Computed example of a mutant assay.
Amino acid sequence: MSTTIALVDDDRNILTSLSVALQSEGYITRLYSDGEVALKPLTETPPDLAIFDIKMPKMDGMELLRRVREKADFPVIFLTSKDEELDEALGLAMGADDYIAKPFSQRLLLARIRAVLRRTEARARTAGENDEPEAAEIARGRLVMDPARHRVRWDGREVVLTVTEFLILETLAQRPGVVKSRNQLMDIAYQDDIYVDDRTIDSHIKRMRRKFREVDGAFGAIETLYGVGYRFAEE
């Protein structure tokens, strides 16, 4: 059965180009030019995933997400501008699954879509397997990760990560002190993709460090070994 993706953006050029790219990958697309128009069909017939632009007239992406979450539950990726980091954080706290900054490559967006869909499918399998225990929490010093609920805490304070950031951190935290190369981390975060620039991992690490330093200014648990890769520091 084909996967349905809803696109909500007031820029018709983006709607058209993304729709063509997604359809070429086998996805079914539903297009909406603003949040008000999208709200009713999204809640009455939820898609498998939706992509919301944050800045839209009439009803912006965050208000649309809030209204949708009252009646439906499906993964959402935000499209943002580079100067909207606060909006990104608020959107993720409200229940968005990931975000990508404009301008972006369609290849990168497709990679994020696949990562979010994989994570959603894994959660659904876990929820449906009542006879099996949930994935165990990962506790590494002050870090606690709950894969089943996609939650991260540092010193008891919640840190909101995107799906891709969570996968990278989970990989590092599972084996503290063991170095993972960029290529190894890309294989985890983008399993189905032919090519993603390895510097994308550097960007994810940079954002994660910034998020952790917002709750602990001395955070240094994600270490860089220049020319080799990254590791989670052993306590």
Rank of each mutant, 00 (worst) to 15 (best):
M1D: 12
T3P: 09
T4D: 13
A6D: 12
D9R: 02
L18D: 06
L22G: 11
Q23V: 04
E25H: 07
G26W: 04
G26S: 08
G26K: 01
R30H: 11
R30M: 14
L31P: 03
S33K: 09
D34C: 12
D34H: 14
V37N: 12
V37M: 11
A38T: 05
K40V: 12
K40N: 11
P41N: 07
P41F: 05
E44L: 10
E44A: 08
T45A: 10
P46E: 05
D48S: 04
I51L: 10
M56R: 07
K58A: 13
E63T: 13
L64G: 03
R67V: 01
R69L: 08
A72H: 03
A72N: 07
D73Q: 09
S81F: 00
S81A: 14
D83I: 00
E84M: 01
L86I: 12
E88L: 02
G95A: 02
G95E: 02
A96D: 02
P103H: 01
P103S: 00
L109F: 08
L109I: 06
L110Q: 14
I113F: 03
R114S: 10
A115W: 03
R119A: 10
R119T: 11
E121H: 10
A122V: 02
A124R: 15
R125N: 08
E129F: 12
N130C: 10
N130I: 15
D131R: 15
E132R: 14
P133K: 01
P133A: 01
E134P: 09
A135D: 13
A136H: 09
E137S: 06
I138G: 04
A139H: 12
R140C: 15
G141M: 03
L143K: 00
V144S: 08
A148W: 02
R151P: 06
R157H: 04
E158V: 08
V159Q: 04
L161M: 05
V163S: 11
T164C: 12
I168G: 01
L169N: 10
E170Q: 15
E170S: 13
G177K: 01
V178Y: 12
V178Q: 15
V179C: 11
S181Q: 08
N183V: 12
M186K: 15
D187P: 01
A189T: 06
D193E: 15
V196F: 04
D197N: 15
D197Q: 10
D198N: 14
R199V: 08
T200F: 08
I201A: 01
I201R: 02
D202R: 07
S203G: 13
I205W: 06
I205F: 06
I205R: 04
R207F: 00
R207E: 04
R209N: 14
R210K: 15
R210L: 08
K211M: 12
F212T: 07
F212H: 07
F212I: 09
V215P: 09
V215H: 07
D216P: 11
A221P: 02
V228M: 15
G229M: 05
Y230M: 05
R231K: 14
F232E: 00
A233F: 11
E234Q: 14
